[in-house]
Nucleic acid binder design. Structure first.
Length: 609
DNA sequence: ACGCTTCAG
DNA sequence: CTTTCTGAAGCGT
């Protein structure tokens, strides 16, 4: 479906749930507390703070009730709340495991594998297809005795629910939970189904995994995330229609009034820099050109409403005001959309491996070469172990040769030099990191060597040289942080069984083909954007509402899957110049002739059910 | 490809 | 020591 909101085509056309584990409420990040409480339930009712270095990185509700807050100094926390339970949280292993568990659990409900992690404890699910299917299954004469189907191929998997009303909290809170049976607004109905799905997922998450969760339900990532903040913890909120105003009065739609009530800095996607730019523009001041950071205007509040209704505001103005070096192109359109509750960003495809793995530690004082080498060894050891836990195929352990699901192409060493005392002005902005990188040496993938041997080699052949490039001076530096990252991790194209391995190995050899294909894809994406961008921005908001199911148009790659089903007339192995296809579901890259079998593998293995 | 910035939790 | 320990994405060269 497509929906026009305030003159904006919501290209995402998706029905989303933003899911977030609870007990992180206002911090709404760092899943650290829930994990500790999970391991030791008595902690739930005690003030609990998680310590990293000298600060409280997060704390539970009881601690916050007693006046603690995130990133507070430990000694302050102890003086404010002497009986606070402090646990060390520098080793993130358990939190990463909990995060993976949460992600795998939610992903298992997805049909389209659009399941995106945000940090350790939040997940976006695009459940458009599930809602579509269940709306199409409804018996409109018996809405209150509906059955929500969670698996297309098994009608017994699911739960009973009342489709005539929404469940959970609503925004605005005065809204009725009942659907109007006379009009039966399709958007309202679908959000109702979304609310029941969210409730079911929260219930299952708690019964199966023991975690409570906070969820927001709306039509795009922005709104789902923001509305999820309304009630916490262990709650869900649905942003109810109307999403567009009937007439001229734009304050009558719930999206505009909801967005208007936020401070600009609360909007995800509007960070420190952009918020500062917006405030400066609306207050008609030059953007802080390095003036006193002490009198920061950054603390001032400015509502979305003030920006949105500012004279002369619009995508073009914002592009001009906010644009600059390091600012993404199209920032004006993007921010204008966000201010109006529009977010075209798709929920990302589920990933089997991260794009990057990094390990870092911070230091009070690190100014000798020997100490640096010692720390580099510790960090490198952790990095190799992380690579082995996160990038290795857990199955078929007998295949010694290539268990790597993905290979990082580069390794990067970053440091944060401690800011030097300054002769005057003390305008010492540089808490910035500096880095050097080099190709990842292939010996790190050798599983026959012990980790220690690999680490030693990595240290002497790669990391120490990188460090010398980064800090050519023998002395005089003092580092407050070191980070080592395995970067540019790209999933190996693969399929189950022997054929898949052959195919994936073939591709590793055929770089040329791959690159050629990637260029094609980029061009196609740009073309799509041109088409979308070419439509004019209407002055007035117009309603545009497509009916259920209208977006079931096959994508480019889906069409290729169909074509490829019959297409076994391909030639030899040496097919340089063959057009490649990518599976829409798992993003695996392969020649068209492999897509048929690959697609059947998806269907049969029931991934995502 | 590489170094850096911005945004996120 | 405006912080912690990450991860994704995009700009400019």
């Amino acid at each position: 479906m497509a929906l026009l909101l305030q003159g904006w085509l919501l290209a995402a056309r998706r029905w989303l749930l933003a899911q977030e584990t609870a007990a992180t409420a206002r911090l709404h990040h760092h899943p650290l507390c829930p994990v500790f409480e999970h391991e030791n339930p008595r902690l739930k009712h005690l003030p609990l703070a998680v310590q990293q270095k000298h600060i409280v990185v997060t704390c539970n509700y009881e601690a916050r009730r007693r006046g603690l807050y995130k990133l507070q100094l430990i000694h302050q926390a102890k003086s404010v709340c002497p009986d606070v339970v402090i646990v060390l949280g520098e080793d993130l292993t358990r939190f990463r495991n909990a995060s993976k568990d949460l992600y795998a659990f939610l992903r298992s409900f997805s049909w389209n594998a659009r399941c995106e992690k945000l940090g350790f404890d939040e997940v976006f699910l695009d459940v458009t297809d599930i809602i579509d299917y269940n709306v199409s299954n409804l018996n409109f004469n018996h809405l209150s005795n509906a059955f929500f189907c969670l698996a297309k191929d098994d009608p017994t998997v699911g739960f009973a629910y009342d489709a005539s009303r929404l469940t959970g909290h609503l925004h605005p809170k005065t809204a009725s939970a009942n659907l109007d049976p006379a009009s039966l607004d399709p958007l309202h109905l679908r959000l109702a189904l979304g609310s029941h799905l969210a409730e079911y997922l929260r219930t299952r998450l708690e019964s199966d995994k023991g975690y409570t969760a906070t969820v927001g339900i709306s039509t795009n990532k922005l709104l789902a995330k923001l509305v999820g903040n309304t009630y916490k913890p262990n709650a869900q909120t649905t942003l109810v229609p109307p999403y567009i105003s009937d007439g001229e009065d734009e304050s009558e739609d719930n999206v505009t009034s909801f967005m208007d009530s936020h401070d600009v800095s609360q909007i995800p996607g509007i960070g420190y820099k952009i918020a500062q730019g917006l405030r400066a523009y609306v207050r008609q001041r030059p953007a802080d050109f390095g003036a006193e950071p002490a009198y920061d205007s950054s603390k001032e509040t400015m509502l979305v409403h003030d920006v949105r209704t500012h004279a002369g505001i619009g995508p073009e103005t914002l592009e001009r005001v906010l644009g600059g070096p390091n600012v993404p192109r199209g920032i004006g359109v993007r921010v204008w959309g966000l201010l109006n509750g529009c977010d075209e960003a798709e929920v990302g495809q589920a990933r089997d491996v991260p794009a990057q793995i990094s390990i870092e530690d911070s230091y009070i004082r690190l100014d000798s070469f020997d100490a640096v080498v010692k720390e580099l060894r510790l960090l490198a050891n952790k990095l190799i172990q992380r690579m082995q836990t996160d990038l290795l195929d857990e199955e078929d352990e007998e295949d010694e040769d290539d268990r790597w699901l993905a290979h990082p192409k580069a390794i990067r060493l970053s440091t944060r030099p401690r800011r030097r005392e300054n002769s005057e002005g003390s305008r010492n902005r540089s808490f910035a990191r500096i880095s050097k990188s080099s190709p990842m040496p292939t010996f790190v993938f050798n599983l026959k060597e012990s980790v220690d041997v690999v680490v030693d080699r990595l240290l002497s052949e790669t990391l120490v040289p990188l460090f010398r490039r980064l800090h050519p001076e023998q002395r005089g530096w003092n580092l407050s942080l070191i980070n080592i990252a395995a970067t540019n991790i790209t999933e190996a194209a693969r399929e189950q069984g022997g054929v898949g391995r052959d195919i994936s190995k073939m591709f590793r050899r055929q770089d040329e083909v791959l690159r050629q294909w990637k260029v094609e894809e980029t061009a196609a994406l740009e073309a799509e954007e041109v088409v979308e961008g070419s439509s004019e921005w209407p002055e007035r908001r117009r309603e545009f509402f497509e009916r259920v199911g209208s977006e079931d148009v096959p994508t480019r790659s889906q069409e290729r899957v169909c074509d490829a089903d019959n297409g076994w007339e391909s030639e030899e192995d040496d097919t340089v110049g063959v057009a490649l296809s990518r599976c829409e579901e798992c993003r695996a890259v392969m020649p068209p002739f492999a897509m048929g079998a690959h697609g059947r593998w998806h269907a049969q293995s029931g991934r995502g059910n």
